[in-house]
Design a protein around this nucleic acid. Sequence first.
DNA 1: GTTGACACGTTACGATATAACATACTAACA
DNA 2: TGTTAGTATGTTATATCGTAACGTGTCAAC
Lengths: 168, 168
Amino acid sequence: MTADPDTGPLAFRSHDHSHCADGVLAEADALSERQGVKLTPVRRRALEILLRSHRAMGAYEVLERLAEDGFGKQPPVAYRALDFLVDHGLAHRIRRLNAFAACMCPGTAHRPAFFICHACNAVAEAPADAVGRAMDSAAEAIGFSVERMNVEAVGLCPACREVPHAAD
Amino acid sequence: MTADPDTGPLAFRSHDHSHCADGVLAEADALSERQGVKLTPVRRRALEILLRSHRAMGAYEVLERLAEDGFGKQPPVAYRALDFLVDHGLAHRIRRLNAFAACMCPGTAHRPAFFICHACNAVAEAPADAVGRAMDSAAEAIGFSVERMNVEAVGLCPACREVPHAAD
DNA sequence: GTTGACACGTTACGATATAACATACTAACA
DNA sequence: TGTTAGTATGTTATATCGTAACGTGTCAAC
């Protein structure tokens, strides 16, 4: 039941953020190139902000950082950059939090599920292909064709389960 | 939007709404009784509004109807009633739409998935226990304990698949 | 060198949600 | 019966999230 902190999803284990951010950023560059879309300065910077913060961030929070870097100061600036990232699989939108998080494995076909700890606010993206397949068959049963899906769970992460009083 | 908001489909098949609304309302009464919680007039009315509209409704839309019936006119009135319904399994919150929908089978343990048609805005609640189980094992693999989850898919409902030009 | 597509910026506003506080009802009980 | 504690409802005010609409700059295609 209790996971090894070194084998859980990225968000729930310790590691070198700046290292993984660089890697993903490089993948994002290559991926955009291949797809023939432009990872412009604002977009790239927005992705970098998400990657380095290494958590889910609200659009206005991202906007603030972008503004500090000399980009526009108005909401559409952030929303457009973030929407681009989501549309191209470089970030995910977490509806439950009204927030965005960098995708940790862009380019690989995956239908992620998010696990949100309500005690420490950590968010983990986990592969959930089995969940995706279950959804597909549920959809098929009612004749629905799925284009996108979000799967989000709220609960306690491994660390917070061990410190019950810290939970809210 | 659906042509007639009061008869637009929640599930993707036609049936007698008023009949099913009455039934669910009765179940909700019994369920609240058993749980020792109070389905007060605002709460019951909010549920009734959701049931009769038979679709996902925004909090402000529900608020408007409640106000027409002599209840409070301010947002917290609606949010509190809706939160109560959600907490007690009488309604579901659909994050993707910032909306709420009555649960069509309250009391039965279920973890529903929602299928949202982006052409006609219909929303169907489907049993998705297989999805729930898949989530449980994904969670277990990372040591996460799930308390609540949302599973929402966007795509095309059976009717809209047949009318491609109607899709947005 | 004009056109068209796109990106980026702005202003202005709309939509969603909650904090904080006042008042009333109800149930338990001295 | 009066008091008290808990819960429910209502208010005002404000926070937070998101988008419409429009102007300007850039750049590649023709």
